[in-house]
Write a protein that binds this DNA or RNA. Structure first.
Length: 198
DNA sequence: GTCGAGATTGACT
DNA sequence: GTCAATCTCGACT
């Protein structure tokens, strides 16, 4: 019995807050991706903030505006899909138009369309399905074609969810050789959730 | 046209 | 804990 409900996309003003605040607010919200095969969704349980101009670890650092980072300068609420090795990561563009800031979605907890996720990404441990930025994009079928998608309407959007009980923050992971930027406490997660990557 | 780098994952010791 | 895999973009010749 598959949960079938109508998701309500968040409104534009939700994204028009400081990036660090948006990163916290996104926890507990639901990421929804609709495909011809069906709808998959997951509760966001882990995020990271990337502050463009002042953050060396961010792709928008130093106002390097290229075709690849172009979407970071657009209005908040757009999807920035980035490729790394053979994996994809998904960010939500935040802050104001013209500021290359974004929030990386690092992990979600499967909510609906779980059968389809398992088909795309067969795993022995259910916990491994979406507990990482490259994992959730594979499970939910997010590709480069989703680059630049405006996440306020289907087929890719974020819906309001329940507020997490307890939120923690700390330093980001996976970004070495970026100097002091790696120690910034820009990572947020839902305390105790098994789908948080580490 | 060619070369190098990157916000990761999974398998193995 | 270490290490290799594999793809797109961006810079340079």
């Amino acid at each position: 019995m598959e949960q079938q409900q109508n998701f309500e996309p968040l409104v534009e003003s939700f994204y028009q807050v400081p990036t660090l605040e948006l990163a916290k607010n996104l926890l507990g919200c639901i990421l929804v991706k609709q495909t011809v095969e069906g709808t998959t969704s997951g509760i966001i349980v882990e995020t990271e903030a990337y502050l463009g101009n002042s953050d060396r670890a961010a792709h928008g650092y130093g106002n390097r505006r290229t075709k690849r980072t172009e979407i970071l300068y657009a209005k908040p609420g757009h999807a920035y899909v980035h490729l790394i090795h053979n994996h994809r990561l998904i960010n939500v563009v935040s802050s104001m138009e013209g500021d290359p800031e974004s929030v990386l979605i690092r992990a979600v907890e499967p909510f609906s369309g779980i059968d389809e996720m398992l088909m795309r990404r067969p795993v022995k441990k259910f916990q491994n399905l979406t507990s990482g930025p490259g994992k959730l994009t594979q499970a939910m079928g997010i590709h480069m074609e989703d680059y630049g998608r405006y996440m306020l309407e289907p087929p890719l959007f974020i819906s309001e969810g329940k507020s997490p009980v307890s939120v923690k923050s700390g330093s980001r992971i996976g970004i070495d050789n970026t100097g002091e930027a790696k120690d910034y406490p820009y990572r947020f997660w839902v305390d105790g959730n098994p789908f948080v990557s580490k």
